[in-house]
C-alpha cells in the first residue's frame, strides 16, 4: 500500500487492497463506517482499516454461536484435516504474507521465520485435534457399581484479544488451539499491524473452515475489550496483550456470566508457545455416570 501512494508514470497503477473485517464467512465493512490509519515505520499510511464497533462484535458473536453447534459436532478427524488445509493454503501464500509483514516493519528474515512458524503451528495443532481428548479424558474408578468417565467438551464461543506484536504468528497461535478444540471465536487483531490478519481471513475463507467458526475484527482494544468481556453469550475470553488494567477490567466484566478468562503471554516464535494445554484451557470437563449391573462391584466399605 505504501508503495502505491506515490504515482509513478512509468509503472502501471497498483491496485490497492481494501481491508475489511471477517464475520460469518463474509467480508463486510464495519457497520459503523469508521476507519483508522495505522502507519508503517516511515510514517506512511498502511491502509484504511475498519474501526470495528460493538455492533460488529455482536454480529460476530451471533455468527460464532450459530457456527458452534456444527463445528463442535464435526469429527475430530475432520477438524484436523481442516486445520491442516489452513496450513496448506497459508504455505501457498507465503510470499504475500512475508511482503505484508515487511510493510508492517518486519525484516525479510524475521518475516520469513514468522510465516514459516505460523504454518508449522497450524500443522502442529491440526495433529492435536483428534488426540487431546485421549490425553485429557479419564475413566474414573468410583467406589460403587457405576461406570464413570470424564471427557473434554468445547466451551463454545471464545472472544480473543490477539497479541499486538507478532501480528501473524501471534494471531495463529491464539486461534489454532481454540478452534482445534471445537470452539468458535471472535478475534480482535493487532491494531497497529492489522494487514495480515485480514489476509489470513482470506486463507480461512478458502480453506473449508465453515463460515462463523473464526471471525476477525480490526479495531481498538480499549474500545472493544469491555464489550468482548461483558457479552452474555460468550463463554470464554483470551487476553494476550500487556495492559494489566485492561485485563483486570476484563476479569471483572467476565464475572457477570462466569466467562472463563485466560491470560496468554508467550514468546510466540518459540515452540514453547504451543502445547495441548492451550487446547485444554478452552475445554469443559463433563463427567457421566451410569449404573453397571455388577452387584459385587458395589460397596466402598472399610
Amino acid at each position: 500500500m505504501s508503495k502505491g501512494v506515490k504515482y509513478k508514470n512509468e509503472k502501471r497503477l497498483e491496485i490497492l487492497k481494501t481491508y475489511k473485517i471477517y464475520i460469518g464467512g463474509k467480508f463486510p465493512r464495519t457497520e459503523s463506517g469508521r476507519y483508522y490509519n495505522p502507519l508503517d515505520s516511515k510514517g506512511n499510511i498502511l491502509g484504511n482499516i475498519c474501526l470495528s464497533s460493538r455492533k460488529d462484535f455482536r454480529n460476530a458473536v451471533v455468527a460464532a454461536r450459530s457456527a458452534s453447534v456444527g463445528w463442535s459436532a464435526r469429527t475430530a478427524f475432520n477438524r484436523s484435516q481442516i486445520l491442516y488445509r489452513l496450513g496448506e493454503i497459508l504455505e501457498g501464500r507465503r510470499a504475500q504474507f512475508i511482503e505484508e509483514l515487511k510493510i508492517q516493519g518486519s525484516t525479510s528474515a524475521k518475516a520469513e521465520k514468522e510465516v514459516n512458524n505460523s504454518i508449522d503451528r497450524l500443522i502442529y495443532y491440526a495433529g492435536w485435534c483428534d488426540k487431546y481428548q485421549q490425553i485429557f479424558s479419564s475413566v474414573n474408578p468410583v467406589s460403587s457399581s457405576y461406570y464413570n468417565f470424564s471427557v473434554c467438551e468445547p466451551m463454545g464461543v471464545v472472544a480473543i484479544i490477539a497479541p499486538e506484536e507478532n501480528s501473524l504468528i501471534g494471531l495463529v497461535s491464539v486461534i489454532a488451539p481454540v478452534v482445534a478444540g471445537g470452539n468458535t471465536c471472535v478475534v480482535l487483531a493487532s491494531e497497529s499491524k492489522p494487514l495480515c490478519s485480514v489476509t489470513f481471513a482470506e486463507v480461512i475463507n478458502s480453506s473449508d473452515v465453515p463460515g462463523g467458526v473464526i471471525n476477525i475484527l480490526t479495531g481498538n482494544a480499549k474500545e472493544l475489550a469491555g464489550h468482548f468481556s461483558s457479552h452474555m453469550d460468550v463463554n470464554a475470553i483470551i487476553y494476550s496483550r500487556t495492559d494489566k488494567e485492561e485485563l483486570k477490567n476484563i476479569q471483572i466484566n467476565a464475572s457477570e456470566n462466569m466467562k472463563r478468562v485466560f491470560y496468554w503471554k508467550s514468546d510466540w516464535f518459540s515452540v514453547k508457545a504451543q502445547n495441548p494445554y492451550k487446547i485444554r484451557d478452552l475445554q469443559e470437563i463433563k463427567t457421566t455416570w451410569h449404573p453397571i449391573e455388577q452387584i459385587g462391584g458395589a460397596g466402598s466399605g472399610y
Partner: peptide, 24 residues
C-alpha cells in the same frame, strides 16, 4: 452440565470430577 447422571442421580465419589458449566 459438568456432571450428568444417566439412570441414577446424586452420586458422588472422590475419583469423579465435579463442577459446573456456565454460571455454576
Amino acid at each position: 452440565a459438568g456432571v450428568i447422571w444417566a439412570n441414577t442421580y446424586n452420586k458422588f465419589d472422590p475419583a469423579s470430577p465435579f463442577g459446573g458449566y456456565k454460571e455454576s
